[in-house]
C-alpha cells in the first residue's frame, strides 16, 4: 500500500450531503476484475452526459480542479454499498484525502486500506475548508498526518483525530494481512478453544 505522510495540493469542493457510492462509481464499472483504471469513471454520472461528453459545471471538469488531490464534501460521505471500487476510483483519479463532517462506516475503513486519508471534522470547520477549496488552483491545502493538522491556503490550522493503528499503517504503508498473520498463534488458539466451545460452527 502507498504510504501517506504529508500532502499539499488542490482541494475540490463538493458541498453535497449523502454522496453515495453509486455516485462515486456507478455499478456498470464494478464488472472489472482489477483494482486499477477506475479514475476516469469517478463520479461518472455527474461528470459526463449521456453521450460521454464532460458536463462543464461539474467540479472535477473545471480546469482549476482537474488535478485535485483533496476532496472537501458534505455529511455522510460514502454512504451505500461496500464496493471498494469507490476508494479505488478516488485514488486512481489522484485524490488522496477526503474531508467531510462524517463518513459511512464501510467506506471509511476501505479508504485506509488504499492509502487514502478520510478526515472527519465538525461542520463549521468543514465550512471553512469548503470556502478555501472554492478558491481554485491557486489555493493549496496541506495535510500533515504525523502532526494531525490541516493548513488552509491562508495558514489557518485545524487539528484532526485519527485512529492510532490506522495512522501507523497509513504512514508506513503497511499490509494489514501481513500484520495479522504475525498473530497467527493467537488465531490458532482461539480457533481451538472455539471449536470446543461451539463445535457446530
Amino acid at each position: 500500500m502507498d504510504k501517506f505522510d504529508t500532502l499539499t495540493g488542490i482541494a475540490a469542493p463538493m458541498p453535497m450531503i449523502n454522496i453515495d457510492t453509486d455516485m462515486i462509481i456507478p455499478k456498470q464499472f464494478l464488472k472489472t476484475i482489477k483494482r486499477s483504471g477506475l479514475g476516469v469513471n469517478l463520479f461518472d454520472e455527474m461528470r459526463y452526459d449521456d453521450d460521454g461528453a464532460e458536463i462543464p459545471t461539474f467540479v472535477l471538469n473545471q480546469d482549476a480542479y482537474r488535478d485535485a488531490e483533496i476532496l472537501v464534501a458534505g455529511d455522510n460521505f460514502g454512504c451505500g454499498s461496500s464496493r471498494e471500487h469507490a476508494p479505488w476510483a478516488i485514488k486512481d483519479f489522484g485524490i488522496r484525502c477526503v474531508i467531510a463532517p462524517s463518513f459511512a462506516d464501510i467506506f471509511f475503513n476501505n479508504c485506509f486500506k488504499n492509502g487514502i486519508l478520510p478526515i472527519a471534522l465538525p461542520q463549521e470547520q468543514v465550512d471553512v475548508l469548503m470556502k478555501d477549496a472554492e478558491k481554485g488552483s491557486n489555493a493549496r491545502m496541506s495535510i500533515d498526518l504525523d502532526a494531525q493538522i490541516i493548513t488552509t491556503s491562508d495558514g489557518e490550522v485545524f487539528t484532526f483525530d485519527v485512529d492510532p493503528f490506522k495512522k501507523h499503517c497509513l504512514m508506513n504503508g503497511l499490509d494489514d494481512i501481513g500484520l495479522t498473520m504475525e498473530k497467527s498463534a493467537a488465531i490458532d488458539s482461539f480457533e481451538t478453544a472455539a471449536s470446543q466451545a461451539r463445535p457446530w460452527v
Partner: peptide, 29 residues
C-alpha cells in the same frame, strides 16, 4: 463483501459488510 450483510442480524448474528481488502483479509486469516 456486500453492505446488506446486515440481513443475517435477524438471527442474532453479528453480520456486516466489508470491502474487498477486508474480504482478502478474512480469506487469509
Amino acid at each position: 463483501g456486500d453492505s446488506h450483510t446486515a440481513t443475517h442480524g435477524a438471527f442474532g448474528a453479528l453480520a456486516h459488510g466489508i470491502g474487498t481488502s477486508e474480504v482478502e483479509h478474512v480469506l487469509a486469516t
